[in-house]
Simulated assay, not measured.
Amino acid sequence: MKQDRVAKNEEETGSYTLFGAKIQSKLKLGKFQSDIILSGQNLFNQTYFNHMSYYRALEIPEMGRNIQLIIQIPF
């Protein structure tokens, strides 16, 4: 949501929408078992500013696209 109800001498912050997704699966090969997770945040690489962040005043945007592949192997 757009932050337009701000304190005196404070700038407004525009609105933004972020998209993310996550896929998780189990892999079994004999006695070997692991979990595989593929996740992504800010998939459309939206430039945005957190209204409560100090970096907004410096015009440094929040993190862009983030894609992770996680393989969990129990031992």
Rank of each mutant, 00 (worst) to 15 (best):
M1C: 04
K2Q: 13
K2R: 12
Q3F: 10
D4R: 15
D4S: 09
R5F: 09
R5M: 10
R5A: 02
V6K: 06
V6W: 06
V6S: 05
N9R: 05
N9E: 08
N9C: 03
E12K: 15
E12P: 07
T13H: 11
T13R: 09
G14A: 06
G14I: 02
Y16E: 07
Y16C: 05
T17K: 08
L18W: 08
L18F: 07
L18A: 09
L18K: 14
F19K: 09
F19M: 07
G20V: 00
G20A: 04
G20L: 01
A21G: 14
A21Q: 11
K22N: 10
I23P: 08
I23V: 15
I23G: 14
Q24S: 14
S25G: 14
K26Y: 07
K26I: 01
L27V: 11
G30P: 10
K31L: 10
F32N: 02
Q33I: 00
Q33A: 12
Q33Y: 08
S34W: 00
I36D: 01
I36Y: 02
I36M: 01
L38G: 01
L38P: 01
S39I: 00
S39F: 07
N42L: 11
N42R: 09
L43F: 14
L43A: 03
F44S: 08
F44C: 10
F44R: 06
N45Y: 03
T47C: 03
T47M: 09
F49Y: 12
H51R: 11
H51T: 11
M52W: 15
S53T: 03
S53L: 01
S53I: 01
Y54V: 02
Y54G: 08
Y55D: 08
R56L: 01
A57P: 00
A57D: 15
L58F: 12
L58T: 02
I60P: 08
I60W: 11
P61E: 03
P61N: 12
P61I: 03
P61G: 03
E62M: 10
E62H: 09
E62P: 06
M63Q: 13
M63S: 11
G64L: 02
N66L: 13
N66D: 15
N66C: 09
I67E: 03
Q68K: 13
L69R: 09
I70E: 11
I70R: 13
I71V: 13
I71D: 00
Q72C: 04
I73P: 07
I73H: 02
I73Y: 03
F75R: 10
F75C: 00
F75L: 13
